[in-house]
């Protein structure tokens, strides 16, 4: 598999220099990553076989300047940045896929600019809150409990790759710092409770929406799948057996065809 290219988009909002990984050809799909940080994975390669995949790095992560996050002061800023990244990529509209934190951002974008999101795929998104089934405080967990909260299928190849740190001490230090920084920079928009009013805005979403949820997600319970579905007019839910919070890694063979079929029917 070839590596994606990196496109730089100078965004006027917050003076942010965006970095977007691009690969493939076909109708555009924008992928918004999790609070674990940007990773080009097998799932994105699979999407890139049929689509042009654009995967922007959250401010402060990936190829972006680490301190750029300090200029992005609010969720409103963040969503306007994504709106301007789509401008910069020349995409009046695109399919948007978001996983976990990225799913919340995708919802916010689709609520803010409904016409820009052609189809929406949400994979275990956060952004809603139920008193009786609270979202796990994932930023406050020790490593072992965090891993147990994230994954139901630890044997999966991409889960193992995610959990393996480099041997070289300096690379290892950078990987550890990046991992903490990924939670810190995304946490800026969800701390201390990942409920920033999305439920009030979701009625604005018009995109046909596929909601994918790991049946054993211990970070945000699958009961939230219906909460998202109830607020998005044209939506359907798919529950993935044997997967936790990151089903595209834990059960890739189940998730990939679901998402590809859904995106195909849109074009």
């Amino acid at each position: 598999m070839s590596a994606p290219t990196v496109e730089t988009i100078q965004v006027r909002h917050c003076n942010f220099e965006a970095k977007v990984k691009v690969k493939g050809s076909g109708s555009p799909v924008v992928y918004l990553h999790t609070a674990g940080g940007p990773r080009w994975d097998d799932f994105l390669d699979a999407l890139a076989e049929h689509h042009t995949v654009f995967a922007p790095d959250h401010p402060g992560l990936g190829e972006t300047n680490r301190d750029s996050i300090y200029d992005v002061e609010s969720l409103w800023d963040l969503i306007l940045i994504y709106d301007e990244i789509l401008d910069g990529l020349g995409l009046p509209s695109a399919d948007v896929v978001g996983s976990s934190f990225g799913g919340m951002v995708a919802c916010e974008l689709a609520a803010h600019r409904p016409e820009r999101v052609a189809k929406l795929v949400l994979i275990d998104p956060i952004g809603l809150w139920r008193e009786d089934v609270p979202v796990a405080p994932y930023m406050l967990l020790p490593q072992d409990k965090l891993v147990a909260t994230l994954f139901a299928n630890l044997e999966a190849k991409q889960v193992q790759e995610f959990l393996t740190l480099p041997d070289d001490p300096q690379q290892r230090a950078v990987a550890m710092a990046d991992s903490v920084w990924a939670m810190g920079t995304t946490g800026k928009f969800v701390w201390p409770i990942p409920d920033k009013g999305l439920s009030k805005r979701m009625h604005r979403i018009t995109a046909p929406t596929l909601i994918v949820w790991g049946k054993e997600d211990a970070l945000i319970s699958p009961v939230y799948a219906q909460e998202f579905a109830d607020r998005i007019a044209d939506s359907r839910v798919e529950i993935i057996e044997g997967a936790g919070h990151v089903p595209q890694w834990e059960q890739p063979d189940a998730v990939r065809p679901l998402v590809l079929d859904f995106l195909k029917s849109s074009s």
């Binding site: 020790p142 230090a173 550890m176 710092a177 920084w181 990924a182 939670m183 810190g184 800026k188």
Partner: peptide
Amino acid sequence: PLHYLATPGYSDYKSLINLFS
């Protein structure tokens, strides 16, 4: 435990690199 002492984001990136290396 460490994860309470330094919630992700609490230490800036430069300090994290210092801490881990």
